[in-house]
Design a protein around this nucleic acid. Structure first.
Lengths: 221, 221
DNA sequence: TATACAAAAAGTGCATGCACTTTTACTTTA
DNA sequence: TAAAGTAAAAGTGCATGCACTTTTTGTATA
């Protein structure tokens, strides 16, 4: 179970940043799930580093709400209540709606065409296990591209944060998605962006997120 | 310039949390301003503690965007571009608009009456230096109460975060507020909440924030 | 005087030690 | 057998040490 960190040399980044990435990955992949206890000392040993960078990484995860910690206690992977689930989507509706509105006038054609191409490929491909993996990648890229095209750094930051929560949820709830519907909604959004129709793009995005909200909330209640 | 930490005994909280509070206070009060360099080692010495809790506190401030740090360099108090200013208010409009909408049906009468009373007092008081202090307190309480009455923990958290940024801005721009207008807008919002008119409450709140946005953006460009 | 440069000072990132708290595992008791 | 109590093990929070990087300062050079 050892994961030596010396393999690659991301010399630019801090050890603590790399550890943050590793742990976030474990949470988003379900390797670490709700209620799991995460001991700083044990992790340090497992990763072959000292407690310090692990401590820093854990603190970041705590601040982002992926872990909870009480004083002198080991951090625990956060669990989501039905209300949390509802709220995460509600906030995404607001932020990503706005981002999509702004993206309509700002997203460059290259990105737009690239997204469209990937969507088309997914549409016409056998929906096997590998397809799901590709779809997840596309979904992430799609939402990220739009948030970025909003032109607002802060909006992007906030959207990333809430989408990460959404992805943690995704694991916990075992993806209640109707992937084909979701893909179809993405295409509707792309059409609106193509036409530079900000209002329609916003509404399609909000509708899209509301659809997953419904699915996830029903899974959680 | 020494500030010994031993004075009060917040025995429940961590040293790092208290230091976080102290530093946030310094930023929000203008004691530490944009571009200022904040050395972990020096601060530790000044506060009479080791680097560790200071390090943790600084990391939190960095994550919240109040400080920026590059690897191996001392953190710097963040400065706001005109775009940052615009964005902070834009996000507040979204989040606090939603919070206010929800608060209309949820805010208890006690809180509502309390806010109204404080507003009335401010309305009928001499607008001297002390008044400004009271107004700032009221403004904070007003927005916080509404965010809390939204019933959403996450919404509250996000609103607090962006309002803190707003307050940091406030210092930098030396409050371009027209306080009387602002107070008047607060009362309009209270009236809508009183009537449990969610849509109107939301619009009044958004209008209110948009007003400060205009003032602040013009200060910054 | 202004510029380049080198040595000293100070700083950050990570490792480790220590005091105290929580957790675990074992033993005793009903 | 199950509950309670307790000693050992492990954990967290903070202090400190060390290697390496950045910053400062003082000196020499144009």
């Amino acid at each position: 179970m050892k994961t030596p960190l010396q393999d690659e040399d991301h010399t630019e980044s801090r050890l603590s940043d790399r550890i943050h990435q590793i742990l976030l990955g474990r949470i988003l992949s379900g390797q670490m799930k709700s209620g799991d206890i995460v001991a700083e000392k044990k992790l340090a040993l497992e990763l072959g580093v000292s407690r310090t960078p692990v401590h820093d990484a854990l603190r970041d995860l705590i601040k982002d709400g992926f872990l909870n910690q009480e004083k002198n206690r080991r951090p625990v992977v956060a669990s989501f209540t039905a209300e949390d689930v509802y709220d995460i989507f509600e906030i995404r509706i607001l932020l990503e709606g706005e981002a999509c509105f702004r993206a309509a006038s700002r997203m460059d054609r290259l990105t737009l065409d690239d997204l469209r191409k990937q969507a088309d490929i997914l549409l016409s491909t056998q929906k096997d296990h590998n397809w799901l993996e590709l779809w997840a990648q596309f979904d992430d890229k799609f939402h990220h591209s739009i948030a970025k095209a909003s032109g607002s750094k802060r909006l992007l930051q906030d959207i990333i944060k809430h989408r990460l929560s959404h992805r943690a949820l995704n694991i916990q709830a075992e993806s209640p998605y109707s992937f084909s519907n979701s893909l179809q909604e993405h295409i509707v959004i792309l059409n609106a962006l193509d036409l530079r129709d900000a209002q329609s793009a916003k509404l399609s995005m909000q509708n899209h997120i509301r659809e997953s909200q419904t699915l996830f909330v029903s899974k959680y209640s």
